[in-house]
Computed example of a mutant assay.
Amino acid sequence: MGLKHALASINAGEDQHWSIQTRTAEDVANDRYQRAEGPYDIHMPVSMIPGSGEVAGGTGTVVRVRCPIHPVPKM
């Protein structure tokens, strides 16, 4: 399963959330990072944000997913 399919599947509930932060060498030189966050859409915007975000050590990508497990009701 690809990342886009997995993230689109996570959109199922309001308490489910995801974000992707990435930082290229050009972003480091300009002291910024790029962020996209759910809900997934084929034409979703990517934001340019000052600083390094959660990307430690220069360049890289951080994928954060919140997908809580709800208790199964007892029968």
Rank of each mutant, 00 (worst) to 15 (best):
E37L: 09
W18M: 06
Y33D: 02
M44Y: 11
S47P: 00
P39W: 08
Y40Q: 02
I42E: 13
P68A: 08
P50Q: 11
R66K: 11
P68I: 05
H43A: 12
I20F: 02
V46W: 10
V55A: 03
M48L: 11
C67K: 10
I42N: 10
R32W: 00
P50E: 13
M48T: 15
P71F: 10
V72G: 01
G38C: 05
I69S: 07
T61I: 12
E37S: 12
A29D: 08
G58W: 00
G60M: 05
D41I: 00
M48C: 09
V72A: 10
E26K: 11
R23W: 00
R32M: 08
V63Q: 03
P73D: 09
V62E: 03
W18G: 01
R64K: 15
A25W: 01
P50V: 03
Q34S: 13
V62S: 04
W18F: 11
H17Q: 14
I20Q: 01
N30D: 15
C67F: 05
D31C: 00
G58V: 03
P71N: 05
T22Y: 14
G51T: 09
T22S: 10
G58T: 04
T22M: 12
G60Y: 02
C67Q: 11
Q16H: 15
G60A: 10
T22H: 08
V72L: 12
E26L: 15
G51I: 07
E54M: 10
I69M: 08
G53M: 07
Q21C: 06
V63R: 04
P39E: 07
H17W: 14
V28M: 06
P68Q: 09
Y33I: 05
A29T: 04
E54Y: 04
A36V: 14
I42C: 02
E26P: 00
C67L: 10
V55S: 02
Y33K: 02
G53A: 03
W18D: 04
A29K: 15
P71R: 10
V63E: 04
S47D: 12
H70L: 14
G57Q: 06
R32D: 02
V62A: 05
I69C: 09
V63G: 02
R32I: 01
S19L: 12
V46R: 10
E37M: 13
N30C: 04
S19G: 08
A25R: 09
R64F: 01
